[in-house]
Write a protein that binds this DNA or RNA. Sequence first.
DNA 1: CACTTGACCTGTCCGC
DNA 2: TGCGGACAGGTCAAGT
Length: 288
Amino acid sequence: MPELPEVETVRRGLSSLIVGKVVSAETHDTDKSFPNATEDVNQFLIGATITEIRRRAKVLMIDLSTGYSLLIHLKMTGQLVFVGDVRFGAGHPSDSLIHDLPDKSTRVTINFEDGTKLFFNDQRKFGWVRLMPTIEIPNISFMQKVGPEPLSADFTANDFIQRLARRPKTNIKAALLDQSVVAGIGNIYADESLWGAKIHPKRLVSSLTKKEMTLLYNEMREVMNLAVEKGGSSNHTYVNAEGKKGSYMNFARVFRREGLACPRCGTTIEKIRVAGRGTHICPFCQRI
DNA sequence: CACTTGACCTGTCCGC
DNA sequence: TGCGGACAGGTCAAGT
């Protein structure tokens, strides 16, 4: 899925596109995509005004005037695309990657009173949308265990080091992907951050020096900031709320660059497997 | 308990 | 061209 920068990009897009709109209808394919009772939808979603769009880790929250929120997780291939320009028939901007919505990947459609629509598309069906009372969001198990936002001002290098220390016997890549250590890092930005800090992803957390962990903290924040600034990364599935791609992949140093030269030392980048995930390293800069 | 692996799905790509 | 298998930006349950 989209990792923190992609979800944040979607959040910003939706903030300017749908806040203030009034929901007029909702449809979905299966209860897995939207596991809510019809009476709750009728009572708390239909007729509600969108008040705010928030994000925590990789979860989006669309707050409603009824005291309920739509919680959305895009997982690996989810997209949340707003279609607002009726001049385009089914309605899409001409430079959008999304051509005709709904399509066979559309799981949920939210209609607004002004005729515009929000589509939740998800090829692999891992993602979900659920409606729940806003006040109960912090009580769900994911929110209970999720770690701090990596870009928040009060998240320090020492916090990072202390949280990593809870996973001493696992490798650093698995620890970065563990949402209870730090929120929002996924496969792309884990690889990019480790390359920046010159740390091999298979290194055990307990083997890292304080200096290395501090460097990793700095690199992680830099990578995340740059990725947010560039609108995230796009493979063939990720698009933002307007159906457009992010440009971080133009700045990636190792991710999906196997066979190419390391931008720091020129050594050929390799792809290996760590924590069950495809992992990109410079074998010279990042040694076990 | 901590840690690793498999499952959830569909689509695409790569080698035979 | 067809087919099998590996793999894909995530997370949770089940296994060791």
